[in-house]
Design a protein around this nucleic acid. Sequence first.
DNA 1: CACCCGATTATCT
DNA 2: GATAATCGGGTGT
Length: 193
Amino acid sequence: MTILETSFFSRDTAVVAQQLLGKQLVHQINGTLLSGIIVETEAYAHANDPASHAYRRKTTRNYAMFGDVGHSYVYFIYGNCYCFNVVAYDETSPAGAVLIRALQPLRGIEWMQSKRSKEKIRDLTTGPGKLTQALGITKEHNGQKLHEDTGLYLLEEQAIESFDIVAAPRVGIREGLDKLWRFSIKNHPFVSR
DNA sequence: CACCCGATTATCT
DNA sequence: GATAATCGGGTGT
């Protein structure tokens, strides 16, 4: 098994968003291994993207989006949930991140069921706030290194052999709807909505 | 310091 | 399908 390295994330944000599909997100917590296959992502850029948290400037909330690629950006939203992003952008941009929107649960499913208080596998990780709760990811993980084994990392191996990618407008935003930066594995049952 | 609002979810009907 | 819950950050006074 190989952990994705920093060069993977120093490319165009929308390209990385597509390349993350089919990869495996892993979190080890108190000796329990939790993981899932990424089946849905969204790209958020910089000054060209009014939907992005990094649209205006660097603040105490969004600074991780301007930081090292291959690190995490975790934020709290709607008083309910955490959203997990991977910082990724190329040399033409000062910021960017990929929001992980849905997973297919792979390992540690019983732990996830208990954490989510839900039995159905489909209720565990089909949404950005659900999957952070299922994997035990909180704001403590903001800015954390993902390209080494720190307990939270991404595995290179494609867990799915081959698939088509669907591009669509992003969810839950008012501006930037012209960009087709929501990516998902075609016809995958664990895509949200 | 007050006001506003959001990259969502759960829980109804 | 509609709506309430809920809270931290950003903005301006």
